[in-house]
Design a protein around this nucleic acid. Sequence first.
DNA 1: GTACATTTAATGTAGTAACATCTATTAGTG
DNA 2: CACTAATAGATGTTACTACATTAAATGTAC
Lengths: 164, 164
Amino acid sequence: MYIHYLFTFIADTMSIETDIKQKKFRSPYQRLALNLIYTTNWLEYKQLEFFKGHDITPQQYNVLRILRGQQTVPIKVSDITERMLDRNSNTSRLVDKLLAKNLAKRTSCPNDRRAVDVVITEEGLQLLAELDPHVDQWEDRFNIITPEEADLISALLDKVREAE
Amino acid sequence: MYIHYLFTFIADTMSIETDIKQKKFRSPYQRLALNLIYTTNWLEYKQLEFFKGHDITPQQYNVLRILRGQQTVPIKVSDITERMLDRNSNTSRLVDKLLAKNLAKRTSCPNDRRAVDVVITEEGLQLLAELDPHVDQWEDRFNIITPEEADLISALLDKVREAE
DNA sequence: GTACATTTAATGTAGTAACATCTATTAGTG
DNA sequence: CACTAATAGATGTTACTACATTAAATGTAC
């Protein structure tokens, strides 16, 4: 629970208005909705280009990160889905892709024979280690704004999702 | 060019941390990057569900809105692409879909015979008019935050994209 | 004006997403 | 326990995305 006092300089060039050539928005909320979609598409496109050079897709990377977060503890396919940024992906087939590249391995779960346990391999860990510095740099592209501003946006986005 | 003083209450439940079950982030920028992608996926999923009931996709709707914005002035396919939220879509085939539904019409451009002019039809305008109140309501789901907060996020997102 | 490069939109293709269905296993109920 | 419902994950199908290629028209350099 925090209180934020912000003093922020905002440039009025290259705004969402000029980017999508829409002069006027019905409300700040409309502008925000379109800006969120536009900015995230922009972000995901850059992400796609970045990962393409490493023979991996953003979703596959997302799964690998989840697996690494588990350390050596196996995780069920359905639990991977729950933690993904894009939960509409078919996790089953995503794991297939990682298996084919020897980045993950799959064992049947002893407690529940319907479930399948997934663990990251040494090779998967190596790939992530290799990517880490570049991903950090990629994420820190946002440092044009202050850490406090970044946290404020995060908190407001949380609030928006929570409202449902 | 504006100065913002903000006083904001932030709830600490149902944050991105609990949503994707990641306890800790490397930096506020990492949290923001993941939160943007997660929130926009959430938003787009809801959008998809909404439009599904009206036999139209979010991208098709986006094109229709651009066409309406032109009033009766025709617009080239390439100019539609420039104004789209997701510029990776194949605008040519999107316009095909609108044509098939009689929501838009296509005429060859007199100045440049390579180009194709697109205009919205009466039927397209009617569909948009029908959707307008629902879309407004959909966008205003964000009114859990203040208009000033919405504008602040928009401005910060603009700043982030501008930095490149 | 001819030759070559560029632009505009359409189309071909591979991979993926969205959604439904299927099989195997477990949970719940009488 | 038998029976039905629910769950986990795999798989089939359709549509769409991302990307490359093509075809036609225009621009540009000589």
